[in-house]
């Protein structure tokens, strides 16, 4: 299943058009993913996860000032971080579905538009896209910070989702479409009833990994003063000058969230594998 994850991180923008791209397993973008087969990795996850929780519990007890104050100050930020992440992932799923369908479309125009979108977006750093939408386009139409943040994250991740959808759609054997067409279904009906349900199951784990990556990348929106988790930590520190304490808590909270989510993704992975698509 994991081999449909398009390799992230080092994808040169040029490699998108070489159609059935070689896809490789890559989990390095998420947090450590526990694997029951590898004990050392599993215990590494446990040490990190429970270590972070223990620190988050004991620090405020041992030294309530400033740790308890920080913990009281940042929950708003956690809410905002999740708000940005969840809304962005939902919009990027829609964009990704359309892009993925475009990338496998036999309509040359649609195909080209989808491919150009993926090329362009993957070639521009997320931070630059964020600045572009908020500051550069802001000179033409000023959108609220939160909207700009969600827009930028969605457009950026939509391109990656598009590649996941494309890989997922292409991983469904050709015989499935042929069987559906032979029964008298239209191409559109075959996509909806036969191809997409199989695709959605297959892409569940990689989409989960994107969710974790997006959650971490969402910290970038603090730069345009969206009050997310990182921003709240910085606001606290800029008043009290307790940078070490504030950012320690921020880092620990991110760590707990991403480690927890990556555990869920790894369960999803085993579950999908068990469902074993032919």
């Amino acid at each position: 299943m994991a081999e449909i994850i398009p390799k992230r991180g080092d994808d040169a923008p040029g490699d998108v058009s070489s159609s059935p791209a070689r896809l490789t397993v890559n989990v390095s973008d998420g947090a450590l993913i526990p694997d029951r087969g590898e004990r050392s990795l599993f215990s590494a996850w446990r040490i990190s996860f429970f270590g972070a929780i223990v620190l988050l519990v004991t620090l405020p007890i041992v030294s309530p000032s400033p740790y308890l104050e920080i913990l009281r100050f940042i929950p708003d930020g956690v809410v905002t971080t999740f708000q940005v992440t969840i809304l962005s992932i939902l919009i990027s799923l829609v964009i990704g579905l359309i892009t993925g369908l475009g990338r496998i479309s036999r309509n040359v125009v649609l195909n080209r538009i989808a491919t150009i979108y993926v090329e362009v977006i993957r070639g521009i750093p997320l931070l630059v896209q964020l600045f572009y939408i908020y500051f550069a386009l802001g000179q033409i139409v000023q959108v609220p910070r939160l909207t700009a943040a969600i827009l930028a994250m969605s457009i950026c991740y939509g391109a990656y989702m598009g590649e996941i959808f494309r890989a997922g759609l292409q991983s469904v054997p050709k015989g499935q479409m042929e069987a559906a067409l032979a029964l008298g279904l239209s191409r559109r009906q075959a996509l909806r009833k036969v191809i997409l349900p199989q695709t959605l199951l297959i892409i569940l784990p990689p989409v989960g990994n994107e969710f974790i990556a997006l959650l971490k990348d969402s910290s970038l929106v603090s730069i345009i003063a969206v009050a997310d988790l990182l921003r709240r930590g910085r606001e606290f520190a800029s008043v009290t000058f307790e940078y070490f304490e504030a950012y320690t808590v921020v880092a620990l909270v991110y760590l707990v969230i991403t480690l927890f989510l990556s555990k869920i993704v790894s369960y999803l992975e085993t579950w999908v594998q068990k469902r074993g698509v032919q």
């Binding site: 054997p173 015989g175 069987a179 032979a182 029964l183 036969v194 199989q198 032919q278």
Partner: peptide, 20 residues
């Protein structure tokens, strides 16, 4: 062609059942 395909059943070597 869809109307015709309704009248023409096809069985494949690899079965091609819908796994979901």
């Amino acid at each position: 062609i869809r109307k015709i395909r309704e009248d023409v059943g096809m069985v494949f070597q690899a079965f091609n059942l819908f796994p979901h």
